[in-house]
């Protein structure tokens, strides 16, 4: 539960750059959201432009298809290696497997029983399966490497081409530079730590402070846009034997094909973690307001919590 005690530091770090965002004011219409005697209505701002909204939803579908079809592809050989080669007789640093009675996940020397979820689970017909990832997490549901590859390698184009278009737009429109790039003051460890603590207490920015992304949002959106997504695409391309002939440096960059495959999997796990936290934050921060802002673009600044200055 958020503490009702006013926190004098709550907005201090953000006031520093407040004047830089005045230009946003031009696009702001102060529309009262409620009529009556309630608290003063909070202004609603135009937060997400059309390309952002389109790409967000399109990419949400594409990334989920990539994730689920990728898990099925992993099921064909649920072992990961470092280096140039790696097959059953070589040492795997990660393995999802099964004993005669239970499913297991092994990472390095640590083995975790995962019966019911990984390595041993019951399929929709009630049969025990010892595949790595369960049917509810994969595309298609029943084992098919070829069908999963069809999905994965076709949707890869839908990830890459619109992704590059969005990169170009977000740089050309200065969305990245203006809305996503953290300012120097925000990158101070104290400021970041303060935001981490506020998030952990579920005390999200309100009022004027919610007008811009906070530093944790900026870093995670930048991390996905310019970190995880390109890493996923490049490690994916590094696994292509034909592209290895075209761009051998890609292999060297990642330390070999099996290292690229491991990094592809780790980046996928990072992407899945981002999605989980992102959806959780939307649910906690006010799902209707957040969803509306990503559908219509309009975002109502959250009202200050009781006892806080607006």
């Amino acid at each position: 539960m958020p503490s009702p005690r006013p926190d004098p530091l709550a907005n201090s770090g953000r006031r520093v750059y407040r004047q830089e965002t005045v230009k946003v004011e031009a696009r702001v219409a102060s529309i009262p959201d409620r009529i009556g005697d309630g608290p003063a209505p909070m202004p609603s701002i135009y937060r997400h432009r059309l390309p952002t909204r389109l790409w967000h939803w399109f990419n949400a579908v594409v990334v989920i298809v990539m994730l689920m079809s990728g898990l099925m592809i992993f099921n064909a050989h649920p072992r990961l290696y470092w280096g140039r080669y790696g097959a059953n007789l070589d040492h795997a640093w990660l393995e999802i497997g099964s004993t005669p009675t239970q499913g297991i996940l092994r990472i390095g020397p640590v083995t975790v029983p995962t019966t019911g979820v990984l390595g041993r689970w019951t399929d929709r017909r009630g049969n025990i399966s010892t595949r790595a990832f369960p049917g509810w997490a994969t595309i298609p549901t029943d084992y098919s490497l070829s069908a999963a590859r069809r999905w994965h390698l076709a949707f890869a184009w839908l990830l890459v081409l619109p992704g590059i278009a969005y990169w170009l737009w977000s740089l050309a429109s200065r969305h990245v530079q203006r809305d996503l790039a953290p300012r120097r003051a925000e990158l101070a460890p104290r400021h970041i730590w303060h935001d981490v603590k506020q998030h952990a207490r579920l005390r999200f920015p309100t009022g004027e402070a919610a007008r811009d992304y906070n530093v944790l949002q900026k870093l995670s959106y930048l991390g996905v846009l310019f970190g995880l997504l390109p890493l996923l695409v490049l490690t994916g391309m590094a696994m292509s034997p034909m592209l290895n002939a075209t761009w051998p440096w890609l292999l060297d960059l990642f330390g070999g094909r099996q290292s690229a495959r491991s990094l592809h999997f780790i980046a996928m796990a990072g992407m899945a973690a981002f999605i989980a936290v992102h959806v959780l934050m939307v649910l906690l921060a006010g799902p209707l307001n957040e969803m509306r802002s990503m559908i219509t673009g309009r975002y109502r600044l959250p009202a200050p919590r009781h006892g806080e200055e607006a």
Partner: peptide, 29 residues
């Protein structure tokens, strides 16, 4: 997704990805 996987026309669309990959790789390589 499972229904789509079973649909011949959707499978054909997915196979378009293979054609695109082949053309792009042949262009680059």
């Amino acid at each position: 997704c499972d229904r789509l996987t079973a649909s011949p026309s959707f499978r054909e669309a997915l196979q378009g990805g293979e054609a695109l990959s082949m053309r792009a790789q042949r262009l680059l390589t």
